[in-house]
Nucleic acid binder design. Structure first.
Length: 604
DNA sequence: GTAGGGTTAG
């Protein structure tokens, strides 16, 4: 009779499996199998020797399943076994838990129970781990119940998995109950309990358990240190780190990551230098730390150094580096990274990788490449849409930005606060007053998003810039929370543009309170007075500035252009410009640092 | 001549 999973079978396993006559080389051969091809070859030998029903050998073969792609093959081998025993079922189940969905794994469990093979203490840990990874607490509780039914809940492996499950699901009291009811505990059970408390933010209990543990290993130490580091208690983390007897690369990485997240890149860098065996995650912690702390130059520097050390970059690092590159607007670097990603075996179809690529190209001014990447994305998410919308916005294509925004909605993606900030900015920059007002209403009414000060600032900018000074002022006054300086500043700028002295005075006085040291506000108001020929007020204001020791700092901006020899002449492509007369101040790499003064950009 | 398992860092 042929039995097979997932076909259910009512066969009762009362027959013993055929006795194995396997010669040792087969089992040894299986041990050294790494690829599907190798597996198939050994399987051929198993078939030739007539051992396809051998539970032991097939179990060894099934447990070699180390990737989702091998799972169908392994399942077909399993399905040829007429009477799989619990051990073989467990091997298959482990393969499914590790490389398939939770629901498929549960189907395997059902098939196992239907077949009459009794689940044992080896059956549950992989299943519980699967629930724990997916935070599937309800299913997890069901599995816990089953483990009690089969009398294995107090097994040290089952128990530790359950502690981990409840810990990950932020139910430390349940974890503690399981722990208390275990008859045998080991260092893993204790460590899982520490992690359970750490996950729910209860560092006090985590430390209490850590201190009374009968034995600690590196994992226990690292778990406690990472708990402190994750919750921002860097000094406690560091103290424990210094006390730790045998640190490994994870101990260093946890600390580096903690310092980076708390903004202390000096300490992060110091420990990074101290760390003897840096791995990809260590480099990633430092590089992403620099990006998150607004130091993209450092991020790129360390990425290039990592390349020199021939350490292997992964997706996480590439996303950080792309973000740094976007921040810097370095088109040369963007092109290099772009081709590096294509050359190396990175999966450009993964949403966050593709989104970072689009964002980088947008920010570096390569809209052609950004559009190509965006249009070829298999799946577009909110972030990639926003990058693209912002790209169109930066390049003055407000109408295109609005069109894309509506495309996004029709694709079923729900815009969030950030998406509305992006689109409202686009409307403001491209003079789309009516569209902007419509979207502002849509955000509040249709999507029930409470407008943030940034949204109000966009609207004030939009209304103000096109002369609706009173409406903009009314909007600011109607805000439920205090507008930030940016919003008032936008309105002051609009007052200057439209020579609205009356509102300008009110707004400027508010700004002088909010930002007493910002010379720009004084300059703007004085320009308003000058436009109205109120020279006396201009003088008063200038004197006030002198009294306060304020001096207007000239605006500065980064400018990047690419020089390429085309037909013997030099073609220069302007990527990003700010209005102002341009003085070349100096050169840093391929970027020119410029000072923007009054006037307009002429020919460069 | 029998196997198979759990915890830490982006």
């Amino acid at each position: 009779m042929r039995r097979g999973f997932p076909l259910s079978s009512s066969a009762v396993q009362h027959l013993t499996s055929p006795v194995s006559t396997a010669s040792p080389p087969l089992a040894t051969l299986l041990k050294s199998c790494k690829t599907l091809r190798c597996l198939e070859q050994v399987h051929v030998l198993i078939i030739r020797k007539g051992l396809v029903q051998d539970n032991y050998l097939i179990s060894r073969l099934v447990s070699l399943c180390n990737s989702p792609s091998i799972l169908p093959y392994v399942t077909s081998v399993f399905n040829r076994v007429s009477y799989p025993n619990a051990c073989l079922w467990n091997s298959l189940l482990k393969g499914y838990c590790g490389h398939s969905t939770l629901s498929d794994s549960l189907s395997v469990l059902s098939a196992m129970r239907v077949s009459g093979a009794a689940p044992d203490e080896y059956t549950f840990p992989p299943l519980i781990k699967c629930c724990s990874d997916e935070l599937a607490i309800r299913i997890g509780v069901g599995i816990h119940g089953l483990s009690i039914k089969f009398g294995v809940e107090s097994d040290v492996f089952v128990g530790s998995s359950l502690i981990d499950l409840y810990g990950k699901c932020k139910l430390p009291e349940h974890a503690q109950t399981v722990f208390d009811e275990m008859s045998v505990r080991n260092v893993v059970s204790w460590t899982a309990l520490v992690v359970a408390f750490v996950n729910s933010g209860d560092l006090g209990n985590a430390r209490r358990v850590f201190d009374i543990m009968p034995k600690r290993n590196r994992v226990s130490w690292n778990a406690m240190i990472s708990g402190y580091a994750k919750l921002g208690e860097l000094s406690s983390a560091r103290k424990l780190f210094d006390e730790m007897p045998l640190k490994n690369v994870i101990s260093y990485t946890v600390m580096i990551d903690g310092y980076a997240k708390s903004g202390d890149m000096v300490s992060a860098r110091y420990l990074f230098e101290q760390c003897p065996d840096k791995d990809t995650v260590t480099w990633s912690a430092l590089i992403s730390g620099y990006v998150q702390n607004g130091l993209p130059e450092e991020a790129v520097k360390f990425f290039l150094e990592m390349e020199r050390c021939s350490a292997k970059a992964d997706e996480f690092i590439m996303v950080s580096v792309m973000s740094a590159c976007a921040e810097l607007g370095r088109l040369d670097l963007a092109k290099w990274i772009d081709s590096y990603m294509s050359r190396s075996s990175f999966d450009l179809c993964r949403v966050h990788v593709a989104a970072a690529l689009v964002h980088m190209n947008v920010k570096c001014g390569n809209m052609e490449r950004a559009s190509y990447l965006f249009n070829n994305m298999t799946k577009r998410d909110l972030v990639s849409y926003c990058s693209m919308i912002q790209g169109l916005n930066i390049h003055g294509q407000g109408v295109g930005a609005v069109k894309l925004f509506y495309n996004m909605i029709s694709e079923g993606i729900t815009p969030d606060v950030v998406a509305f900030t992006v689109i409202l900015t686009a409307c403001s920059r491209s003079a789309l007053v009516e569209e902007g007002c419509r979207l502002f209403d849509m955000m509040r009414n249709q999507y029930s998003i409470t407008a943030l000060p940034d949204h109000y600032a966009c609207m004030v900018d939009l209304l103000g810039r096109f002369g609706h000074i009173e409406a903009a002022h009314d909007l600011l006054k109607s805000m439920p929370v205090e507008p930030h300086a940016g919003a008032w500043g936008a309105l002051l700028g609009a007052c200057w543009l439209h020579c609205h002295t009356e509102v300008a005075e009110v707004v400027a006085n508010r700004l002088f309170e909010l930002e007493p040291l910002n010379a720009g506000n004084f300059v703007l108001l004085s320009n308003v007075y000058a436009a109205a020929s109120r020279w006396f007020d201009v003088t008063v204001l200038r004197n006030q500035m002198v009294d306060r020791g304020l001096r207007k700092i000239p605006g500065r901006s980064w400018i990047y252009f690419e020089a390429a020899k085309v037909d013997g002449s030099t073609k220069m492509e302007l990527i990003y410009i700010h209005v102002g007369r341009v003085h070349v101040e100096g050169r840093l790499g391929n970027s020119w640092f410029l000072e923007a003064g009054l006037g307009h950009i002429g020919n460069i």
